[in-house]
Design a protein around this nucleic acid. Structure first.
Length: 105
DNA sequence: GTGGTGACGTATA
DNA sequence: GTATACGCCACCA
């Protein structure tokens, strides 16, 4: 591994902040964006600790690769619906359309 | 030091 | 489309 925890979290947060309203991205996409496609789990950890970050992180716009929400305990669904994202059974409808990756920025 | 756990992903059937 | 298996890495008891 080449990135330290600090570097990793910093890049993850930076990427997450770039996600526009009404759009979503995946942990895997972020993991690849930071150069650690195998460390998708660390992305999830970074999102979990995003509450401690200095700047607010729209972690609710980050979901699993299939568009399913894992962290429903934090009212992520409510946030996404408020931004105009259709959620059905904790899954994003038209997720593929709303998907936002590093090449679309 | 070791093992279990988790805001995960990909591969396979 | 779902179910199962395996890998991956950081955190915590």
């Amino acid at each position: 591994m080449s990135l330290s925890k600090e570097e990793f979290c910093d890049r993850v947060y930076e990427f997450a902040r770039q996600v526009p309203e009404g759009r979503v991205t995946t942990y895997g996409a972020i993991a690849r964006a930071v150069g650690e496609p195998k460390s998708s789990r660390r992305v999830g950890y970074a999102m979990r600790v995003s509450d401690q970050a200095d700047s607010p992180i729209p972690a609710h716009r980050v979901v699993s690769s299939s568009g399913t929400i894992s962290c429903k305990a934090t009212r992520v669904r409510q946030f996404l619906e408020n931004e105009g994202v259709d959620i059905v059974d904790d899954k994003i409808r038209g997720f593929k359309k709303l998907f936002w990756d590093e090449f679309e920025k």
